[in-house]
Amino acid sequence: MDRTSETAGADAEPWEDHRLKIRGLSKRFSIPGRRPLEVIQNANLDIAPGEFVSLVGPSGCGKSTLLRLIAGIDGDYQGRIEFEGRLIEGPGLDRGIVFQDHRLLPWLTLAKNIELGLLNADYSAQEQRHLVQSHIELVGLGGFEEAWPHELSGGMAQRGAIARGLVSQPSLLLMDEPFGALDALTRVHLQGELLSIWRAEGISMLLVTHDVDEAIFLSNRVVVMGSNPGRIVRVFEIGSEVRANRTGDEFNHLKQQVLEAMGEISESVFVV
């Protein structure tokens, strides 16, 4: 029954090679006086080291909830979430997170904001300075160290948020619609940059997005979720040759398939 891991071919790999391993994950919210709401039902998902996975699905299907469980911000779930072989207990600097709003603290300069990611990491002052500076440069914000967040454009602020998420050198970066609030041009620009950042850092990425095009362009795998209750309905492997040509036939064909999977959720088609 473990479809997702079969799709990933993950069972062939030793257990330790999974960065993230989710088994039988269910999450419900109970609001007093109402029927408990099952937001995620029996989800299984693996992410390999260095893998880029995208999560798409209709609004309200539990994508953010899944991300927050992995980040350790929310708890109280059934099933198992293992990160690098250990059950997740709360947030950790080994998992970076980028929210849809950049969430830079308005009273700190860009450099100070990024430094915040190292507040509780074990680095010497010199290493900290070096890490902050190299990550500012990684996201292309060199020269803006002393800028206040309100002086940055939306795209620049979001790059700052990515730098803050990466500065503690996590092995998994979680992103919840990080480009959702940006204009189309900036978004395409940042997608390209995210891809080169991912190649440079070599870490695992989990991206929640409602943009199927973005998901296919960036990912090794696209995971489609359905709603009521939220669950994983299909997983698409994306070959590198497909991603290479964003306007090609293969790309469009796959995009069509993903969109169909998102639309055919009620029929729960479990065939890849």
């Binding site: 947030p91 709003d101 009273w107 915040l116 507040l119 509780n120």
Partner: peptide, 26 residues
């Protein structure tokens, strides 16, 4: 949202006050 951020960044209670609560109330 900033309180949530403080949890993600593993801030102590003192750091939360110093870095977030006090500046936000300024």
């Amino acid at each position: 949202k900033y309180i949530e951020l403080s949890r993600v960044l593993k801030m102590s209670r003192f750091q939360l006050i110093r870095k977030i609560v006090l500046p936000a109330a300024t």
